[in-house]
């Protein structure tokens, strides 16, 4: 049996070099997906690259332009950052629905993105918030939209040697609010049957001026549903606008039947949750005014 190796690089370049050196190398940050996959035999890395020693990989930095979240920052650490929690409560909540407290003390949003599960909780919230990722690789650094990381279940757009170093969120717009809700059979410890993230902006009169609505677990990757957002823009989030939004959400949902839920149920729940999550985000936007 070829032996797996374990590395604790200190710089981005070292990480990229180690990843590029072996197609079977895998990034370890929280490990809550990777270790489960190793154990079940679905993933047999040749090398494990623990990125937590790399400077800047853990922690939240705020600037005028927004927030930079180190890729190895555990989900629970986001809760402790009051500025981030105030600006993007939907993102922070979504990240803190994953697994249990034990899991969230390790799990990261970047891992959630790169695991590329269609049901990842933080991903619709990140997409709705307009998050981007700083991707580092052997040929340099690029910034890509969070929605462009996953391309299929378990597959990402990252090139060999590339890894996510940082997630960036813009500063919260004035009168902006975001929220995330998911449907699970239990109250905790479940994978989303459907997840809906929304970020919207209201003007002083309460009219919606921008809205991004993203869905999880209803397609091979999380979906940004432009039509759903458009249905809200220009409205005061009245019932007709909400219904038009829900229709767009249901139309965009292309789920499958699986052990976690039927396609019919997922489609219907996408509409129900979208209405509920818009109400939460709108209340936050109004309070933020």
């Amino acid at each position: 049996m070829p032996q797996m190796t374990f590395h604790t690089p200190a710089t981005h370049d070292e990480v990229a070099a180690l990843l590029a050196a072996s197609a079977g190398a895998r990034v370890l940050s929280g490990g809550t997906d990777l270790i489960v996959q190793m154990r079940s035999g679905r993933n047999a890395p040749s090398a494990i690259i623990d990125v937590k020693q790399v400077a800047g990989m853990i922690g939240v930095r705020m600037s005028d332009s927004g927030f930079a979240i180190g890729a190895a920052t555990p989900c629970t650490a986001l809760l402790n950052d009051s500025a981030l929690s105030a600006a993007w409560p939907g993102v922070v909540e979504a990240a803190n629905l994953i697994g249990s407290v034990q899991v969230r003390n390790r799990a990261t949003m970047a891992g959630n993105l790169c695991n590329a599960s269609p049901a990842a909780d933080s991903v619709p919230a990140l997409i709705a918030a307009g998050a981007t990722c700083v991707v580092v690789g052997p040929s340099g650094t690029r910034e890509v939209a969070a929605s462009d990381i996953a391309v299929a279940p378990g597959k990402t757009s990252l090139a060999p040697g590339e890894f996510v170093a940082e997630i960036r969120l813009p500063a919260r717009p004035a009168r902006g609010g975001d929220a995330y809700l998911r449907s699970i059979p239990r109250t905790e410890m479940d994978i989303a049957v459907v997840g809906v993230g929304v970020a919207l902006v209201l003007d002083a009169s309460g009219t919606c001026t921008a809205a991004r609505i993203a869905l999880g677990a209803v397609a091979p990757t999380a979906l940004l549903v432009d039509e759903a957002g458009a249905a809200l823009v220009g409205s005061k989030l009245d019932d007709a606008a909400l219904e038009a939004m829900a229709v767009a959400v249901r139309a965009a949902a292309k789920p499958i039947d699986d052990k976690r839920g039927t396609a019919e149920y997922r489609t219907a729940m996408a509409g129900v949750l979208a209405k509920r999550v818009v109400a939460i985000a709108a209340a936050r936007a109004r309070n933020a005014a």
């Binding site: 374990f6 494990i48 623990d50 555990p74 407290v101 034990q102 899991v103 003390n105």
Partner: peptide, 12 residues
């Protein structure tokens, strides 16, 4: 911080 020790690698 509490963690599941089954989801931590020993070298960590």
């Amino acid at each position: 911080e509490m963690v599941c020790s089954c989801l931590v690698l020993a070298p960590e």
